[in-house]
Design a protein around this nucleic acid. Structure first.
Length: 597
RNA sequence: GGUUCCGUAGCUCAGUUGGAUAGAGCAACAGCCUUCUAAGCUGUGGGUCAUGGGUUCGAGCCCCGUCGGAAUCACCA
C-alpha cells in the first residue's frame, strides 16, 4: 500500500479514536510538502476543526502524534499554521527505490491487446499542401497522447484520416494542368507535397486576378468570388472526379502519390507513424446512407430544395446541413460515415479526435447528431481539442506566406543544433555519423518538447528564436541530464562498481536524495494523470522537475567518489532509476534521448 | 449579435478535487570549471494573478458583472 493511503486510513482511525467521530476518508487531504518546510507529505487539518473543536495547531498535533505512534514508516512531524507536515522515514523511501529498480517498466502498465481499443485520430492532412507548424502540434500531440494511453494500459490504434478528395485538390490539379508543363517532383527536384502545394497557391493567385477583373467589370465581391472561370473549371473537375472520369482520376492518383511520398518523408523525420490510414475518398459516401436512414426515421428533415437538415435548436445549437441540395455530402456527413465505419470495424472503447479548437462546434454537433441517430457510443467520442499555434507576427496565413513549413522548421532546428554543438565542441571526438544522429535527436527533442510542454488546450506562441534555445526548461536540457547519468553509470561499470546492489535502507542525512526519490515515486501517478487529462504537458513539466533536481544533486554531491559506500550505492541507484524514468517519460513525449551529447 | 474558450513577472509558460509567503525558464545583473560532461549549478532584481463584487476558516482556481483578446455560428474543410 502506498504511504498516502496508509496515512489516510490511519487519520480516519485517529479521528475516530480521538474525537469519537467517523469521517469519510475522502475528506483527508494529502499533498506534497512545500520545499521550504521540513517533511514529505502535508495534511490540511482545517476540515477536521468542527469535529475536534480545537485550534488548527492542536488538532494537527493530535493527529500527528497518533500517526507517528501508529505508523512505523513515519518518524516525525511538525505543525505550522494548521498544516501537519509528515516526515516519512528514510527506510521507506529507500525500500521503495530498491523495489522500483527491480521493475522492468517502472511507472507504466502493460497493454492488454484483448481489451477494446482506443482509437486516436490525428494528423488528418489535406493532400493539397505540405504540412506546417499547426500540423506539427497536432502530430506531436496525437503521437504523445497515444503513447501515454498505452502506458496506461490502453490498446491504442493510431488512425490517420487523409482528406484526399474535394475541391482543394482539384484546384492544384487544374493549376498543374494549365501551367505545370508536365513537371514532376523529379524534374523540379522538389518534394511532392511542396510541388502540389505550389500549384494550389498558383491557383489562388490566378483566381484572385480573375476576381479583380470581374469586379472591375461591375460584379460585387461575392458574385465575383463564385463566378471565376477557374473556380468553375475546378468544380467541373470535382464533378468529373465523383463520376469516375478516367483522366481526372489518373491525374488525381498521380498527384496524390507525389504528396504521400512527401508526407512520408516528413512523418519519418518527425518520428511518427500510424496503425491505420483511412482515405476520405473511400469513406465519404457512407455518410449519405446514414443520413438517408435518418430521414426515413424523421430525425433528419428533407427540405423542398432537396437539402437535408437536422434541428439541434432544442440543444442550444443551430440547424445543421447534412446533405446539399444537389445530394452531395458535406464535411460532417463524411465524419458521420467514418465514425460509424470505425465503430463497426473496431468496437472501440473510445474514439479520440485530435483536432484544433476551431472545430469545437463541429464535434459538439457530430456527437449530438450521432446520438440522435441512435448510436449509443456517441458518448464515447472525445474531441481532444488543442489551441492554435501563433507566431510573434500573429496568425499563420497560408495565402500570405506566413506559414511555417514543417520540413523547413525541422531543418532549421537541426542546423541550430549543429552550430551550437560545434561551438561548444561537444561532439568533437565522435564520428560525423554519430554526431549527426545526436544532432538530429537534440533538434527534434528541442522542437517536440517546446510544443508539448504547453497545456494542449491553450493557444501557444511559437517563437522560432526561443524554440532553438537549449538551456533551461527545454528538451535538450533533459536530454543532457540523461547523458550525464549515463556517463556516470558507464564510469561506474568501468571502475567495476556494482550497479544493482541492494541499497542499505537505514541511511541518515540524505535530504537531496530523498527529494529525488520522492519525485521518482510520483512518476506512476503523473503517467496516470496525464492519461486522464490527455496532457503530455504534465509529463513534460514533471520530467523537467526531475532533471533539474537531479542536476542539483549531481552538482553538489559526489556520486562515484563518495566514500561512504552505502551513500554511494544510494546515489548510483537513484541515478539509475532517474535515467530510466527520464528515458521513459521522454518516450511518452515521442522524444529520444542520446547516450552522449 | 448568440455560443465557447482565454487573460498569472518585460517575454514564454507552471500552478493538482479551493490550502502555507503565487513558481520555473528566457532576458538583465553577479558568482562557480585541478573533482563523475559548465548544453550545468548558485544568487539578485522583477507580481494589484485583467478588473469590481460574492461564496468560504481559506480564492489565481468556484459564482455573477465589467473590460480586453481568440475561436465558432457556411449548401468550406
Amino acid at each position: 500500500m502506498k504511504i498516502e493511503e496508509i496515512i489516510i486510513n490511519k487519520t480516519a482511525e485517529a479521528i475516530q479514536t480521538l474525537y469519537n467521530t467517523p469521517i469519510d476518508s475522502s475528506s483527508v487531504q494529502i499533498t506534497k510538502t512545500k520545499k521550504e518546510f521540513e517533511g514529505n507529505l502535508t495534511m490540511v487539518v482545517f476540515p477536521f476543526l468542527k469535529i475536534s473543536k480545537k485550534s488548527p495547531d492542536l488538532t494537527a498535533q493530535d493527529i500527528g502524534q497518533y500517526l507517528v505512534q501508529n505508523i512505523p514508516k513515519i518518524d516525525k512531524y511538525n505543525v505550522i499554521k494548521g498544516f501537519l507536515n509528515i516526515s516519512v522515514s528514510n527506510s521507506y523511501w529507500i525500500s521503495f527505490l530498491n523495489n522500483a529498480l527491480t521493475e522492468k517498466e517502472y511507472g507504466t502498465k502493460p497493454v492488454n491487446a484483448n481489451t477494446p481499443p482506443v482509437l486516436v485520430e490525428f494528423s488528418s492532412p489535406n493532400t493539397n499542401k505540405p504540412l506546417h507548424l499547426g500540423h506539427i502540434r497536432n502530430n506531436l500531440l496525437g503521437w504523445s497522447v497515444s503513447e501515454i494511453l498505452k502506458a496506461n494500459g490502453k490498446n491504442v490504434v493510431r488512425v490517420n484520416l487523409v482528406n484526399d478528395r474535394g475541391i482543394h485538390i482539384c484546384k492544384s490539379m487544374l493549376a498543374w494542368q494549365k501551367w505545370g508543363n508536365n513537371c514532376t517532383p523529379e524534374s523540379e527536384s522538389k518534394k511532392g507535397d511542396k510541388l502540389v502545394g505550389e500549384f494550389y497557391v498558383l491557383f489562388d493567385k490566378e483566381n484572385k486576378k480573375e476576381i479583380e477583373q470581374l469586379k472591375q467589370s461591375g460584379f460585387n465581391d461575392e458574385e465575383a468570388q463564385k463566378k471565376t472561370s477557374l473556380l468553375q473549371e475546378a468544380q467541373t473537375m470535382l464533378k468529373k472526379w465523383e463520376e469516375g472520369d478516367k483522366d481526372v482520376l489518373s491525374l488525381w492518383e498521380r498527384m496524390n502519390s507525389w504528396v504521400y511520398k512527401g508526407f512520408d518523408e516528413t512523418y519519418k523525420k518527425m518520428g511518427i507513424s500510424f496503425d491505420r490510414i483511412y482515405h476520405e475518398s473511400q469513406t465519404y459516401k457512407s455518410g449519405k446512407n446514414i443520413v438517408q436512414k435518418g430521414i426515413e426515421n424523421n430525425v433528419i428533415t428533407k427540405k423542398e430544395d432537396g437539402s437535408a437538415w437536422i434541428d439541434l435548436t432544442a440543444d442550444g445549437l443551430d440547424e445543421k446541413l447534412l446533405l446539399r441540395a444537389d445530394g452531395t455530402s458535406v464535411y460532417i456527413t463524411q465524419d458521420i460515415g467514418t465514425a460509424v465505419q470505425r465503430f463497426s470495424e473496431y468496437s472501440p472503447e473510445k474514439q479520440i479526435y485530435v483536432v484544433g479548437n476551431e472545430q469545437n462546434y463541429h464535434f459538439q454537433v457530430l456527437a449530438l447528431v450521432l446520438s440522435k441517430l441512435g448510436y449509443q457510443w456517441a458518448k464515447d467520442i472525445f474531441h481532444l481539442s488543442y489551441g492554435m499555434v501563433e507566431l510573434p507576427e500573429g496568425k499563420m496565413k497560408s495565402r500570405e506566406g506566413t506559414v511555417v513549413d514543417a520540413d523547413d522548421l525541422m531543418d532549421e532546428m537541426t542546423q541550430s543544433a549543429r552550430e551550437i554543438s560545434k561551438e561548444l565542441g561537444k561532439l568533437d571526438d565522435l564520428s560525423t555519423e554519430e554526431a549527426e544522429k545526436i544532432i538530429q535527436t537534440i533538434a527534434m527533442g528541442a522542437l517536440k518538447y517546446f510544443i508539448l510542454k504547453v497545456d494542449p488546450k491553450k493557444n501557444m506562441l511559437f517563437d522560432p528564436k526561443e524554440s532553438i534555445d537549449f538551456n533551461g526548461n527545454t528538451g535538450p536540457f533533459i536530454q543532457y541530464t540523461y547523458t550525464r547519468i549515463q556517463s556516470v553509470l558507464r564510469k561506474a561499470a568501468e571502475t567495476g562498481i556494482q550497479l544493482n546492489e541492494n541499497i542499505r535502507e537505514n541511511i541518515s542525512e540524505i535530504e537531496k536524495e530523498k527529494e529525488i526519490i520522492q519525485l521518482l515515486y510520483e512518476f506512476p501517478d503523473v503517467v496516470m494523470e496525464a492519461g486522464k487529462a490527455y496532457s503530455p504537458a504534465l509529463i513534460a513539466n514533471y520530467t523537467y522537475e526531475l532533471a533539474k533536481t537531479y542536476n542539483q544533486l549531481y552538482h553538489d554531491f559526489p556520486i562515484l567518489k563518495e566514500e561512504n559506500s552505502d551513500i554511494r550505492n544510494l546515489r548510483i541507484g537513484l541515478s539509475l532509476l532517474s535515467g530510466n524514468v527520464i528515458k521513459k517519460a521522454m518516450e511518452l513525449l515521442g522524444i529520444n534521448v542520446p547516450e552522449k551529447m
